[in-house]
């Protein structure tokens, strides 16, 4: 984690979902700075520019999907902490994502408590 707080990149094509997640991150005190991206391509670009401490990554997105963006970020920095955001039926994608370097996953609709747990765990790990 950087010294001046935690920077989190929230990636989702729906601005509604980004807002919901941002509000959870703020109310949990998990992030001091939040950056957003609305598609996979923007996600990689934002990652390179801002080097966030953690990334939450939606799966279905235009331009490049979450898996492609995950791989792109991993190429830039294989230690990046990427948390996948999926729905219940998409659990099969998780395996692929984990193989590609994702740290963990959270499920929509978000449960505030488990989002906190998963993200905290990832942030504590190196």
């Amino acid at each position: 984690m950087s010294e001046n707080g935690t920077k989190i990149l929230v990636v989702d094509d729906a601005s509604f979902m980004r807002t919901v997640l941002k509000d959870i991150l703020k109310s949990n005190g998990l992030a001091t700075e939040i950056i957003e991206a609305a598609d996979g391509v923007e996600a990689v670009r934002q990652f390179i520019t801002h080097r966030p401490d953690l990334i939450t990554m939606d799966v279905n997105m235009p331009k490049a999907d979450g898996l492609q963006a995950l791989k792109g970020i991993m190429k830039v920095d294989h230690t990046a902490r990427v948390i996948m955001v999926t729905s219940v039926e998409q659990k099969h994608i998780i395996q692929d994502a984990m193989k590609s370097g994702a740290r963990d996953y959270i499920i929509k609709p978000f449960d505030k408590g488990s989002v906190g747990l998963v993200l905290n765990k990832a942030l504590r790990a190196k």
Binding site: D13, M17, N60, S87, K108
Partner: peptide, 12 residues
């Protein structure tokens, strides 16, 4: 993707 996005928002 549109159906999926609405689904995610609606479930939230």
């Amino acid at each position: 993707r549109s159906a999926h996005t609405i689904k995610g928002m609606a479930s939230t």
